[in-house]
Nucleic acid binder design. Structure first.
Length: 312
DNA sequence: TGATGTTTAGGCTTAC
DNA sequence: GTAAGCCTAAACATCA
């Protein structure tokens, strides 16, 4: 639970559950999937609190990965030796935090038995992904953008150009953008003394802030016969199938009630303060997140191919 | 052998 | 008050 310190969160427990932290880590990767060790690294890099008692929280984190259906394990391919599997977010886990709290989900994401894609549904998903790939290729051709080189594990085709994952920085800060004047930003800046995040937006959230990579230019990988046509199990590919989540801002457990704290997660301001460009309300990302009323259900063709349910 | 992954259990907190 | 979510601990299995 959040235990805001006097002036900083740097040595305090972040107001995020392990599920949130893990999801953030996964979302921060360009391929939307990370091995366990990288998830550890992400969390430790950004949250000093987790640089201690590693055995404790890492055990909890592993427990969460296994226990929660919102995380899916993607085996390494034979040509990618290494220990452990990759972990990704389930395509439909986007509404887990519908109440906006990163600390406690309103509903636990649960995959029904039928949700494990049947062959027919897999083909539907594959078809959908192909369509998305074509759309992206067309967009790239129009803009002259070249495809970034990615491994066969990438999930690039899974995200539509309008979809913003709940753990994406855009969603986290979206509400702040709507605050008139400079209050939001100044508040965020004042909090940048929290987690000493040394990375910039483009580093921590490359898939969100590198315009040549994210969204409109997500890479397409076609691949190896041992796996699906996309290099990974179909099930793990369809991040674009989720519903548009509510803007996830920690609403309850947060330091908002504490003097000097805003509702924004403490590490977010650090990102922003390091990336003035991304703060521009006229930036493509911001414009997209604000001006695009389209929901994934509107932009995606077959969300029904991936059924899941949040159980209470 | 250590890292990774699964499962079970108990206690605490929070939403309903 | 109850159910559900979260955290922590622990035991065990698997694998590089």
């Amino acid at each position: 639970m959040p235990r805001p310190g006097r002036n900083t969160y740097s040595d305090q427990k972040p107001p995020y559950s392990y599920i949130s932290l893990t999801a953030m880590a996964i979302q921060s990767s360009s391929e939307k999937m990370l091995p366990l060790s990288e998830i550890y690294k992400f969390i430790m890099d950004r949250f000093p609190y987790y640089r201690e008692n590693t055995q404790r929280w890492q055990n909890s984190l592993r427990h969460n990965l296994s226990f929660n259906d919102c995380f899916i394990k993607i085996p390494r391919r034979p040509d990618q030796p290494g220990k452990g599997s990759f972990w990704a977010l389930h395509p439909n886990c986007g509404d887990m935090f519908e109440n906006g709290s990163f600390l406690r989900r309103r509903k636990r994401f649960k995959v029904l038995a039928a949700d494990h894609l049947a062959p027919s549904k897999q083909s539907d998903a594959a078809h959908y992904l192909q369509q998305q790939a074509k759309l992206r290729l067309s967009a790239l051709a129009a803009t002259g953008t070249h495809l970034p080189q990615m491994s066969t594990y990438n999930l690039g085709v899974s995200q539509s150009s309008t979809f913003k994952h709940p753990f994406a920085i855009e969603n986290i800060i979206a509400r702040e953008y709507k605050v008139p004047g400079s209050l939001a930003f100044s508040t965020m800046q004042s909090m940048s003394a929290g987690y000493p995040l040394h990375n910039q937006l483009t580093t921590a959230w490359p898939h969100m802030y590198n315009t040549s990579v994210i969204d409109t230019a997500a890479p397409i990988s076609m691949a190896s016969s041992d796996y699906s046509a996309y290099g990974v199990p179909i099930k793990s590919l369809c991040h674009g199938g989720q519903s548009l989540p509510a803007i996830p801002v920690p609403i309850k457990p947060t330091p908002t009630s504490m003097p000097g704290f805003s509702a924004l997660p403490p590490h977010i301001p650090a990102f922003l303060s390091n990336s003035p460009q991304s703060l521009s309300p006229t930036s493509p990302q911001t414009a997209t997140s604000q001006s695009s009323p389209a929901t994934p259900s509107e932009t995606l063709t077959s969300p029904s191919t991936l059924q899941s349910v949040a159980v209470h």
